[in-house]
Amino acid sequence: MVNDRGQLYTMEGVAAGVIMLLTAYIVVSTTSVYTAGDTHIPDMQLEQLGSDVLAMMDTPDRDGKESQLVGFVKMGTGGGNDLRDAFLNNSRMRAGDPDNDLHAQVFLSYRRSDGSVNTTELSPPSDPGFTGRENAVRVTRWVQLDGNPSGIPGLGYSPRPRAVLVEVLLWRA
């Protein structure tokens, strides 16, 4: 005759195993939790990197000389992708990983004669992978010019000293 006295022991054993596994999982995962704070850290670092690169490009080599960034902005859209390429090269200037995933898109904001502010792409053609939905950070830099940048639509004024804002979208893809 078969009896089923062992069944209760088996169930108890299984339950104990589950409890032990659960406890081990909880204890281990308590020490390493991916928090909401961690997700922002790469964004923060990218923003700082971009900001530093723009600041560096806006620093003249010599006192009284024009900075690289001002030179690029003066060329306006005529410079093609020069500004973006220089920016990305500077961003990748570090040891180790060449960081080929880094992408950027450069825009220029300026005030028109009617007082409205317009934003235009400064380094056409745009990045082939750019959709506008990237998880990008935006870094900006004020640039002051003595005249009008070339190739910018709707500037309106006759050439005058003006302040324009260079905006760079920076993301990894």
Partner: peptide
């Protein structure tokens, strides 16, 4: 007028873009 315009540039673009 030029000086005023540059200041207006900074104020207007700050409001619009930032």
């Amino acid at each position: 007028e030029t000086k005023k315009n540059v200041q207006k540039d900074i104020i207007a673009i700050s409001l619009e873009r930032k």
